[in-house]
Design a protein around this nucleic acid. Structure first.
Length: 420
RNA sequence: GGAGAGGUGGCCGAGUCUGGUUGAAGGCGCUUCCCUGCUAAGGAAGUAACGGGGUAAACCCUCGUUCGAGGGUUCGAAUCCCUCCCUCUCCGCCA
């Protein structure tokens, strides 16, 4: 949720929203609704104050005076109820719009859409494609089974088999131990959440169409453990000494991938279900930008140790999700496609999600909302895609990156020997 | 799934039957001060959040809201009624 007070007092705040693609007229409308709402609030509160006072008198009054006083209070109540109804409608009108307004983009974000990103850093080269692309190599190694998956589950599903599974768990182990060394608490999160949790984490109403819903039970399958991680401190008042609260969530992630028909149909680059280790931070509002840099550096450290050439881009304002004020994408070079593709990302939500969740920190001058940030530590399936292209050898074997070797047990995986 | 008990401030815990001066006793914790070689112990005071308005501004004034959530009854609800959520105990089922 945006800060309505800031919205009316701060022009930059407004323009940050416009840069996200919201029509300025909507903001104008919201502001005028909000103003009349406050005027009504004042009236309601004055009436209620009178009514409260009248009621209080009754309690103290002598029995013979009561009848008269009750009649007076009853009339006040009728007036109050009328005004309250007006006020209720006004707040509803404000809320309906306010909940859809995205967090303003930070002024440092480039303007524009998907194409207007700014390259922050490039690490490693743009190497030539290996003999097999990730999809072919997955078949070759017997690591990915998509045909049966298509029959049983539909498109965009896959079975992961053989050493790929061992690689998956090595990746998870490796990532989690790295996060622990940075002070993250590992968390295995539930993947089903209530609607309100989706709203509070900043995903609803904007991204509702991307989420699987279990209508019978009013639950939603999360597309990232971030949702449940955020909920770990919903409604809490934290101590400054606790911050940052760093959580490393592991969970399967479910995404409908609506509107991506025909896109990335090869292999397991884009599937409905994958496992992910996610970083989440509840942070002191004063240091959240530093925290964002920390998340980014951890992501890059992981990419470097997995020996994946990549670049970091700052996502343009118009391409940011609703809750993010700024976002870095780490894009890894995908040799078979000859382009950089997103593998991880991290963003600073500032107080957008915290406001909905009412997660606060006790401060010297009153309590304030915390800032929340999140970043991908390891999106396992997609990481495998890049590993399969970058570490496949000419003889078909797979060279295990050194960082993973302790967690896997060997340094090379040989192709399966053909059965006759 | 069946039967019962319960959700009160940072925490614990009264109040609910018998609705009114209870934003809520008491305790713990915390803050400030006093006392004391130091510490501990002891004494005094203070200590909810959120929202609106006032103000140049405010830790200042004022109003409102909040006793799991949302409705209802009433002049007035922590207290009565309804719905939902959650926790605990017993039974059943179960990886």
């Amino acid at each position: 949720m945006i800060d309505l007070r800031k919205l009316r007092e701060n022009k930059d705040y407004q323009s940050g929203i416009v840069r996200k693609g919201v029509d300025a007229s909507i903001i104008e409308e919201l502001l005028s609704l909000e103003e009349s709402c406050r005027a009504l609030q004042l009236e309601v509160e004055q009436l209620r104050s009178e009514q409260n006072a009248a009621s209080k008198e009754i309690g103290m009054a002598a029995p013979e005076e009561r009848k008269e006083k009750i009649e007076l209070a009853a009339q006040l109540k009728i007036d109050l109820q009328e005004k309250e109804e007006e006020y209720r409608e006004a707040t509803e009108a404000v809320d309906t719009i306010a909940i859809t307004i995205p967090n303003p983009a930070d002024s440092r974000c480039p303007s524009g859409g998907e194409e207007n990103y700014k390259v922050i850093e490039v690490v490693g080269g743009q190497i030539l494609p290996p003999p097999m692309n990730h999809s072919e190599y997955g078949d070759f190694m017997g690591w990915v089974e998509k045909e049966k998956a298509a029959e049983n589950m539909g498109s965009r599903f896959a079975y992961l088999t053989g050493e790929a599974v061992l690689l998956e768990f090595a990746l998870v182990q490796y990532t989690l131990s790295k996060l622990v060394s940075y002070g993250f608490t590992p968390v295995v999160t539930p993947v089903l959440v209530r609607e309100q949790m989706m709203v509070d984490a900043g995903f609803f109403p904007t991204d509702r169409h991307q989420v699987y819903e279990l209508a019978e039970d009013d639950l939603f399958l999360t597309g990232t453990s971030e949702v449940a991680l955020a909920g770990l401190h919903r409604g809490d008042l934290l101590d400054m000494t606790q911050l940052p609260v760093r959580l490393g969530g592991f969970s399967s992630c479910f995404r409908r991938e609506a509107g991506t028909y025909g896109k990335d149909t090869n292999g397991i680059f884009r599937v409905h279900q994958f496992d992910k280790v996610e970083m989440f931070s509840f942070c002191d509002p004063l240091t959240s930008w530093e925290e964002l840099e920390t998340l980014r550096s951890i992501e890059q450290e992981i990419l470097n140790e997995l020996e994946l050439p990549h670049r970091v881009i700052m996502v343009a304002a118009g391409d940011l999700g609703a809750p993010a004020a700024m976002k870095y994408d780490c894009e890894v070079w995908l040799p078979s496609e000859g382009q950089y593709r997103e593998l991880t990302s991290c963003s600073n939500y500032l107080d957008y999600s915290a406001r909905r969740m009412k997660t606060r920190v006790r401060g010297e001058e009153g309590n304030q909302l915390v800032h929340t940030l999140n970043g991908t530590a390891c999106a396992v399936g997609r990481t495998l895609v890049f590993l399969m292209e970058h570490h496949q050898q000419n003889d078909g074997s797979f060279k295990v990156p050194e960082a993973l070797q302790p967690f896997l047990g060997y340094d090379v995986i040989l192709p399966p020997t053909k059965e006759i």
